[in-house]
């Protein structure tokens, strides 16, 4: 009998804390975030706009922009620590082993170069291919992400593409070197449902065939439902809830997740006003004591104003909310 080594996660983030030192004091944008992604797994990340999703992704690929910095925590890729690597070494990992799709397609594309030049350069940096082969590979990638007339389009400049096509070029760029981990920040936001379906099935296929791990940040719950295996819900720099996709979407436990799922508009539901969570997420300088969601939470009670809830197992998920503290659960069951 062969002893199978314990399944090692491909990515492991431990107690990540991201700070911005400012004149008015230090802002904590991401606080005590821990998560892992297994080979071949898609972790969806959702949450309030400004909750720290993109910063978490940027920290993993080593592209936090100063003055932002990792103040605490560790990031491990295939068991090896990568958050403290020298710039040059991290640059090699990025692109070759971690592919990134950013929220903003313009940061990844150089407006002065044709798409073909950018793809060919990236391919040749990471794979042992001749220029001619690299160009053929570039066209193939563009076809895979659904760009029509790829042979012709490859020689155009980014501004000659529509918003959604530019986003697909960025996706092609991230897939160039067949990375082990893909950080995809809103990869399908600008895309229509059919292209979206195509990109999602492409990501899922990569996951299956190459055991690639994917961190998929998106606001689109349809995409989450379809693509993610597990989902992390972020609020105000922390993970509020994390668990299997069915649990989080259909059986939300944290009051914030509940509010979020309730805000999704549906075709055929005729409502004058869409459901929304009242109020706004606190600014980083004004995060309240206790649970950060307490000013907006319909279920708030005394403890929420003093104690910060930590993640604790609830059924198949983990939830950071005092409603699931042992005492509360006993009280709820008792009477």
């Amino acid at each position: 009998m062969i002893v199978v080594p314990a399944n090692q996660p491909l990515l492991e983030v431990k107690n990540l804390r991201i700070e911005f030192p400012t004149r008015r004091g230090t802002l904590v944008a991401v606080n005590d975030v821990s998560l892992h992604i297994d080979p071949g797994e898609v972790l969806g990340v959702v949450g309030e706009s400004g909750a720290g999703k993109s910063l978490t992704g940027a920290a993993i690929i080593g592209l936090l922009e100063p003055p932002g910095r990792i103040a605490e925590g560790q990031i491990m890729l295939e068991g090896r620590r990568i958050d403290d690597l020298p710039y040059e070494e991290m640059r090699r990992i990025r692109g070759r082993r971690i592919g990134a799709i950013f929220q903003d397609p313009l940061t990844s594309l150089n407006p002065l170069y044709t798409v073909s030049r950018q793809l060919v350069e990236t391919i040749m940096t990471h794979l042992p291919l001749s220029e001619k082969e690299a160009r053929a590979r570039a066209i193939e990638l563009l076809q895979e992400v659904g760009i029509p007339s790829a042979e012709e389009r490859v020689d155009h400049y980014p501004h000659q593409f529509s918003g959604g096509m530019r986003q697909r070029v960025v996706i092609a760029l991230a897939l160039c070197a067949e990375p082990r981990l893909i950080i995809a920040d809103e990869p399908t936001t600008a895309l229509d449902v059919s292209i979206q379906a195509q990109i999602i099935s492409l990501l899922k296929r990569l996951c299956k065939e190459h055991q690639t791990a994917v961190m998929l940040v998106t606001h689109d719950m349809g995409v989450i439902a379809e693509a993610a295996d597990r989902v992390a819900v972020m609020y105000s720099g922390r993970i509020a809830e994390i668990g299997p996709v069915r649990e989080v979407v259909l059986n939300a436990k944290h009051p914030y997740t509940h509010g979020l799922m309730g805000s999704i508009p549906h075709i055929g539901h005729d409502v004058d006003e869409l459901t929304q969570i009242q109020g706004a997420m606190p600014r980083l300088t004004e995060i309240p004591a206790g649970c950060a969601f307490n000013p907006r939470c319909p279920k708030v009670f005394d403890r929420c104003y003093h104690d910060r809830p930590d993640l604790q197992p609830v059924e198949a998920s983990e939830v950071a909310c005092h409603l699931y503290d042992a005492e509360e659960r006993r009280a709820a069951a008792g009477d």
Binding site: G47, A190, S263, Q276
Partner: peptide, 20 residues
């Protein structure tokens, strides 16, 4: 042009309600 596709669904509801 895609005013709310970068927003989470709850903020999206706030903006769409405001627009209405």
């Amino acid at each position: 042009d895609e005013p709310t596709s970068a927003l989470d669904v709850s903020v999206q509801s706030q903006i769409l309600n405001l627009m209405k």
